[in-house]
Simulated assay, not measured.
Amino acid sequence: MVAPHDDAPITTSKRTEKTAQAAENIADPKGSSLVGRSVTINRPRHELYVQWRDFSQFPNFMENVERVEMIDDVTSHWAVKGPGGSTIEWDAIITQDQPDSLIAWSSADGADVANSGRVEFHDAGERGTIVTATILYDPPAGILGRLVAKLFQREPAIQTRRDLRRFKQLMETGEVATSARTTKELEEETA
């Protein structure tokens, strides 16, 4: 009898040795909370990698990212909305970059939110590409910070799922669907 193959992301496993293995796959791991999400996007791997590698585009599909500025080829400065209207900032360093396959990063020493992770791009045949994000992080203010972040919908596990869904929408349709009107739409209505 052949054992069934489980192709679910390793970070979804309830077996602690499997989730520990996922954390070990991150170069220069920083953080103690592990988040892993995957989405299949009907676009070629190369297109998805190129779009993701342009970090300045993240505010277009990542709800809590205010801005990402490239300092040099491997270092970026992040500004992200935090709970209660605060802004959290840090520098991140790319630790691995394999074109069309993966991008890994780690926060610089002294970051307010220690974090690291990787985004992988795998062929899904005619269905496109499987994009998997694996993130390690330490919430600011520990457990209390995590509870506040969850309350304000700013917790990385929630945001990663939403952001990957928005990335899928952007790459497949050219826009992110929203029921909220943008500032530009409101201005056009009153003009």
Results as ranks from 00 to 15, higher is better:
Thr134Ala: 02
Leu136Gln: 01
Ala23Ser: 11
Pro83Phe: 13
Glu155Ile: 00
Trp90Ile: 13
Val119Asn: 00
Asp72Glu: 05
Met70Lys: 00
Glu66Gln: 15
Gly31Arg: 12
Glu66Leu: 15
Gly31Asn: 06
Phe61Thr: 10
Thr129Leu: 09
Val39Thr: 06
Ser33Asn: 14
Arg118Thr: 05
Arg118Cys: 02
Ala20Tyr: 06
Ile143Leu: 04
Met70His: 11
Trp78Pro: 10
Glu24Lys: 15
Ala27Asn: 11
Pro83Met: 11
Ser32Asn: 15
Glu120Val: 02
Arg118Ile: 05
Val113Tyr: 08
Asp112Asn: 15
Phe152Cys: 07
Ala111Ser: 08
Arg67Gly: 02
Ala114Pro: 03
Trp105Met: 04
Asp73Ala: 03
Val80Met: 06
Asn25Cys: 13
Ile41Arg: 00
Ala111Gln: 02
His122Ala: 12
Ser33Trp: 04
Thr19Lys: 12
Tyr49Pro: 11
Val148Asn: 05
Gly117Thr: 01
Glu89Thr: 15
Ser116His: 00
Arg43Asn: 05
Asn64Ile: 01
Arg45Ile: 05
Gly110Glu: 01
Ser32Pro: 14
Ala149Val: 02
Leu34His: 01
Ile26Val: 10
Lys81Ala: 10
Tyr49Phe: 14
Gly82Asp: 08
Val131Ala: 10
Glu120Tyr: 02
Asp72Ile: 08
Ala20Trp: 04
Asp123Arg: 08
Gln57Arg: 02
Ile71Tyr: 06
Glu17Asn: 08
His77Tyr: 05
Val113Gln: 12
Glu155Thr: 06
Thr134His: 01
Met70Ser: 12
Glu89Arg: 15
Asn25Ala: 13
Arg37Asn: 14
Met62Leu: 13
Arg67Ser: 11
Ser101Trp: 13
His122Ser: 13
Pro139Thr: 01
Glu126Gly: 08
Arg53Met: 10
Ala133Leu: 03
Val35Cys: 02
Ala79Tyr: 12
Ser32Asp: 15
Asp91Arg: 05
Pro140Cys: 10
Glu66Thr: 15
Val80His: 07
Pro139Tyr: 04
Val119Phe: 12
Pro139His: 09
Gly125Thr: 07
Asp54Ile: 11
Gly85Phe: 12
